[in-house]
C-alpha cells in the first residue's frame, strides 16, 4: 500500500507575524518558513507505518510556489520515498487544494491519504474533510492514534473530540488528519539530508491535473486584532483579591 502525505510550507510557528501596511495580508518575504507542524506529524505517522511493514511507499506532495520544493526536500530527508510538487500560486484555498489532491490520488492510487488537521497560517481545518468528501472516502479527523489492519484493509482511529476521545473504524482507502498528540516527529539526520538530495521530486502543472483555480472567496482585508490595554503587576495576593472583587467585579 502506498501512503500519500500532503504537506504545506507555512510561516514558522515561532515567528511573530507582521501585517502588511496595505492590509492585503501577512508579510512572508524574509520570514522564516517551515513545514506546517501538523504536516510533520502526518509524515511521521506515514513513515512509521512504512517501518512497521503496513505501507510500501510514502509519497509527499505539496502545492504552491517553487519554494515548496525546500519543504518537500525536508520531507524526503525525514524519510519519504519521493515527492510531487504541484506548481501553483501561493494563495490556494482548501477547496482547490482538495481538488488537486483528489487528482493526485487518482494518478497515484494510494491506500491512505494523511494530512495535518489544520495549517497554522490560515487555521482553516478543512482540506482533509473536503478531499475525503470529493473522493467519497471515509475520514478520521483529529487522530491521536491510528492502527492499520493490513488483512482487513481497515484503520482504527482514535479521534480527539470535545469532551474526550472517539474511536472509529474506517475501511481503506481513507483520509486521516493528524492531531498534535499522534506522535513526535523525528529530526532529519545529516546523512538522510544528503540522501534526500538524490530522491525524485516530480513537478506537475495545474493544467496536467485539470483543476480550475477560480475561487469563490476573496480577502477584503487583513488587520491586527484589537490590542489589550496594558495590565498591572501586583505585589500581593491580598491586592489581587481586592482588585478582582472591587475593580474588575469578577468574583
Amino acid at each position: 500500500m502506498k501512503i500519500m502525505v500532503a504537506i504545506k510550507r507555512v510561516v514558522d510557528y515561532a515567528v511573530k507575524i507582521r501585517i502588511k501596511s496595505d492590509k492585503t495580508g501577512v508579510e512572508t518575504t524574509n520570514v522564516k518558513m517551515s513545514m506546517n507542524p501538523f504536516c510533520e506529524i502526518a509524515l511521521e505517522e506515514a513513515l512509521r507505518m512504512k517501518e512497521s511493514g503496513v505501507a510500501s511507499e510514502v509519497i509527499a506532495v505539496s502545492m504552491g510556489p517553487t519554494q515548496c520544493v525546500d519543504t518537500l526536500r525536508t520531507g524526503l530527508a525525514m524519510g519519504a520515498d519521493r515527492a510531487i510538487h504541484v506548481d501553483a500560486p501561493s494563495t490556494l484555498y482548501p477547496l482547490t487544494v482538495a481538488k488537486l489532491l483528489k487528482a493526485l490520488v487518482q494518478v497515484e492510487k494510494p491506500g491512505l491519504l494523511i494530512l495535518g488537521k489544520q495549517a497554522i497560517d490560515d487555521d482553516c481545518n478543512q482540506t482533509g474533510q473536503m478531499v475525503a468528501g470529493l473522493l467519497n472516502w471515509p475520514q478520521g479527523t483529529f487522530a491521536s492514534k491510528v492502527v492499520v489492519d493490513k488483512e482487513k484493509k481497515a484503520a482504527t482511529v482514535d479521534r480527539e473530540v470535545d469532551g474526550g476521545l472517539e474511536t472509529l473504524c474506517l475501511d481503506l482507502p481513507a483520509v486521516i488528519t493528524t492531531d498534535l498528540r499522534l506522535n513526535q516527529p523525528r529530526y532529519a539526520t545529516l546523512p538522510n539530508i544528503m540522501k534526500a538530495k538524490s530522491k525524485p521530486i516530480k513537478k506537475m502543472s495545474l493544467a496536467e491535473l485539470n483543476v480550475d483555480l477560480r475561487s469563490d472567496l476573496e480577502v477584503v482585508q487583513v488587520t491586527a486584532p484589537p490590542v489589550r490595554k496594558a495590565g498591572v503587576i501586583l505585589s500581593s495576593v491580598d491586592e489581587l483579591v481586592d482588585k478582582l472583587k472591587n475593580e474588575a467585579h469578577v468574583i
Binding site: 484555498y93 482548501p94 477547496l95 482538495a98 487555521d123 482553516c124 481545518n125 478543512q126 482540506t127 474533510q129 473536503m130 478531499v131 475525503a132 468528501g133 470529493l134 475520514q139 479527523t141 483529529f142 479521534r159 480527539e160 473530540v161 470535545d162 475561487s215 469563490d216 472567496l217
Partner: peptide
Amino acid sequence: SFGKNILPRAAALLDVSPITD
C-alpha cells in the same frame, strides 16, 4: 469538533468553499 468534522465535507459535496471559525 462536530462542526469542523462535517461541514467542510458537506461543502465539498456541494462544491463550495466553507469559512471556518
